[in-house]
């Protein structure tokens, strides 16, 4: 994978590639992608993709309120908070 594609991919994944990561990760990613090419040698014409492992259709729940008692415990885990809000640096 060329550097440009790697950087675009990293941007989409919200990961910075500094300190040699570009080369190190780039090599690992490219090696796997090359391995993935192997799939092109197999004929899958007419096959439906399998998106789910083994599921039953039509799983739904009733529209009944089940309030969670965990709101406060989760707010307590906020790296930074203000009253009941999660705080982040300002969006410009």
């Amino acid at each position: 994978m060329d550097i440009g594609e790697l950087e675009t991919t990293a941007a989409l994944a919200q990961i910075d590639l500094g300190n040699g990561d570009l080369e190190r990760l780039g090599e690992a990613v490219s090696q796997m992608l090359a391995h993935f090419e192997k799939m092109n040698t197999v004929d899958t014409e007419g096959l439906e993709p399998t998106t789910h492992a083994l599921v039953r259709d039509n799983r739904v729940r009733a529209d009944d309120v089940t309030p969670s008692p965990l709101a406060d415990a989760m707010i307590d885990q906020a790296p930074e908070r203000e009253d009941r809000f999660f705080v982040i640096p300002n969006v410009l």
Binding site: I15, L25, L33, N40, T44, L47, T50
Partner: peptide, 29 residues
């Protein structure tokens, strides 16, 4: 990070059919 990058790449538009969708078909096989 390597796996996130790889997974992001195989889903990107333009590459998805070649990788992700292909893999799902291989899975069927």
């Amino acid at each position: 990070k390597t796996r996130i990058m790889l997974g992001t790449y195989v889903l990107r538009s333009g590459f998805q059919d070649q990788y992700y969708t292909k893999a799902q078909k291989v899975r069927t096989l």
